[in-house]
Design a protein around this nucleic acid. Structure first.
Lengths: 235, 235
DNA sequence: CCCAAGCTGAAATCAAGCTGTAATGCAAAA
DNA sequence: TTTTGCATTACAGCTTGATTTCAGCTTGGG
């Protein structure tokens, strides 16, 4: 998942970026609103963190412009405590959550995680697909109740698929959301990770949770998602 | 479906072309308005993406000329952010949608898909013909509720027919809209794909969704489209 | 500071599936 | 009946993805 951070204090920006990367996100960072807006329009970000007290182009403006341009990823705004009125304006401008400075980085990460979960339409952070369970909070994955240990990148791939279930996801798109650098590399990393995931998630090769659509991409099978898991769709 | 892209920035042109091909379209691309206009007049394109800020022949001119010559495929215009006034002019000149640069490629593809759907006169992306359903968004096809797996080219053929229902479509026309290269080849690919489609869509040979008009082309049967979906046509 | 373990990503090889050609058969028109 | 156009089948070649292996890097422990 890819996060855009716009924050003019370079130290805070640096720290935030670090924490978010630690939490497993790809991060685009910018200290100013104009460049930030550009990044938000150019790259496929999944969430933005925007400081309202920006110099050049104010944060509110950035949010409004992003919305005008049809970008509808969630936005978390940061405000100085003394300017709490801003938060109201921010929420009205289309922000999804806010945090007043100073704050604990752990809390920020928690809020970001919560917002991210909503991106995939999962109110609860626990996604079940038959014998497979993914806890988006603890980032744990279970197969028939037993935990499966995934590496960082294996989890990233799975997470993106879980967030976009039953959707054909091209390898390009996967790359873009998982790597910060230029993702158009001619490499077969994605195939390799899909392979490793399949081996761990479906050791017997019976579930086929990840389908391949030749020439088009991969798709996370929807058959046994929680919404429809109980009801036997007979006909 | 065939898309014409006229964009003078070679990098952007390249990227756009890549994304559109990923999305399953045949693409004609040109960095300049004059050649672009030629392509738009010469080839049976279904949609054009035109940058208004072209050097030689301006985009607006291209759009007007295309319209004068009776080409009425939808047009999506691209404008630089600062030149938003252009978008108004573009829409007045006959564009159907616009996007300001920079933009997410995913959004462009989404808009293109939306415009394409309108070509076929389908507001909603779900086309039903009796027991047959085609979802133009997820590109899934269902037969009596069960998904039928089509290959890339099988789907392209079906898509074109669905977009032109109850219309006699020549094999040449099918070729032209599906392949970028010279489509006048003396080959029987189209017959082969029609055959494969028929086998998958109508395994019992009862529905006859695709009619053959000897010497003229193929026609997607309209009998069982939702409007007239009453179960009558038992020959 | 060094070593061990594990992870990532590249390259090579292998397997599968799709495309398009060609050959043959069949049915409709002339 | 002959001719023409389409249907069907089989298959070779190619493209794409899967799998395996390995080198280099990172990380954590001693």
């Amino acid at each position: 998942m890819r996060i855009l951070v716009i924050e003019d204090d370079p130290v805070l920006l640096e720290t935030l970026t670090g924490y978010l990367r630690d939490a497993g996100y790809a991060v685009d960072a910018s200290p100013d609103g104009i460049e930030g807006l550009y990044l938000g329009e150019e790259f496929p970000v999944d969430l933005a963190i925007i400081d309202l007290g920006l110099p050049e182009l104010p944060g509110l403006e950035v949010i409004r412009t992003l919305h005008q341009r049809g970008r509808n990823f969630p936005i978390l705004v940061l405000t100085a405590r003394s300017e709490w009125q801003d938060k109201v304006a921010g929420l009205e401008a289309g922000a999804d959550d806010y945090l007043t400075k100073p704050f604990h980085f752990e809390e920020l990460v928690a809020r970001v995680n919560a917002l991210m979960r909503r991106v995939g339409g999962h109110a609860q952070p626990l996604v079940e697909m038959g014998p497979l369970k993914v806890d988006l909070t603890s980032q744990r994955v279970y197969l028939e109740g037993d935990e499966v240990e995934l590496t960082t990148y294996e989890y990233k791939v799975l997470q993106y698929l879980v967030m976009h279930p039953d959707e054909v996801v091209t390898k390009t798109r996967l790359s873009e959301h998982i790597y910060e650098e230029d993702a158009d590399r001619d490499s077969n990393v994605i195939e390799v990770f899909i392979g490793r995931l399949r081996r761990k998630l479906d050791p017997d090769g019976k579930l086929k949770p990840i389908e391949t659509l030749r020439g088009r991409g991969y798709r996370l099978a929807l058959e046994v998602l929680p919404e429809r898991a109980n009801t036997q769709s007979s006909g």
